[in-house]
Design a protein around this nucleic acid. Structure first.
Lengths: 147, 147
DNA sequence: GTTATTTAGTACGATATCGAAGTATGTAGT
DNA sequence: ACTACATACTTCGATATCGTACTAAATAAC
């Protein structure tokens, strides 16, 4: 079982590098003033559901609340989201997408897609599928691990 | 081929999240004052080879040179690396590991290993292997893509 | 119902990351 | 050998991220 350990570290190492390189691809497509972390929030609000609270978002991205406050305030400044008071909890807030935010996310993805397809064309489709499936399992394992 | 595009985004999305969660696991093991980006440099110097120049390191991690200057200076402050003038290029420098740096990296990995083994135990070994192999291919594709 | 504790978000100060401009060395062109 | 350009690193100012301490609202204890 000794070979296993370096393998695990390779796994995280490759994942870390790809994450960084993928982020660079994204940044290149984002309009001036919008940054990767902000885009991730827009993306999450569309993929999952908007109306999330700042704290829920912070937990989803495993970042401190204060970081999310900052990220959100930037999105709000660009009118990409709308912050409303939480209807059932006076301490809390809800984050809603604006039309502009929705468009920005969709346009960015549309603009990035051809490059991704081109870049990943050497990898067979079914292998990508199986990777995503395994990565999802790993993500869930890690996710459940946080207390 | 229309299903392919969301799949690709899922791929990067999962990778991004795992990268973040993995980084959190690492940070929890690092001694006070040492940060993930600094550890990555130590790790790279051992995995690849030390004696790299700051610019080579910046390129390896796809970060700006200025960021690497800062990261390196932190490592130097903790005596984890040694900076020497480059023997063949007066503009450049070389980054060498100290014994302390080597130990810190090895101890951190040793301390992290059991948790990783435990966490990833539900995933069959051969699937991890095939993932690492595919991730490496993707990493190389992305790497070659930068101009 | 009053008090203590917990929870959601923010303010503030410290450090990390980054882009633009500066300095010094190396290289090419002639 | 001189000039022009390229390259390696640093300095500096701006923003991102993060930890600590705070405020306000909700919940629990009694």
């Amino acid at each position: 079982m000794n070979q296993t350990i370096p393998l695990y570290f390779s796994l995280f190492n490759e994942i870390g590098i790809i994450s960084q390189l993928g982020r660079a691809l994204l940044d290149a497509r984002l309009p001036e003033g919008i940054i990767g972390s902000q885009f991730s929030v827009l993306n999450h609000l569309i993929r999952v559901k908007d109306g999330r609270t700042p704290l829920e978002l912070a937990n989803s991205f495993q970042v401190p609340k204060t970081t999310m406050t900052h990220t959100i305030s930037g999105l709000q400044k660009h009118k990409l989201i709308l912050i409303k008071p939480h209807p059932e909890d006076g301490r809390s807030k809800q984050v809603w997408l604006t039309e502009k935010g929705r468009d920005l996310r969709n346009n960015t993805i549309a603009s990035l897609s051809p490059q991704l397809v081109e870049l990943l064309s050497p990898i067979p489709h079914d292998q990508i599928e199986s990777m995503v499936s395994n990565l999802t399992k790993i993500r869930i394992l890690l996710d459940n691990n946080r207390d």
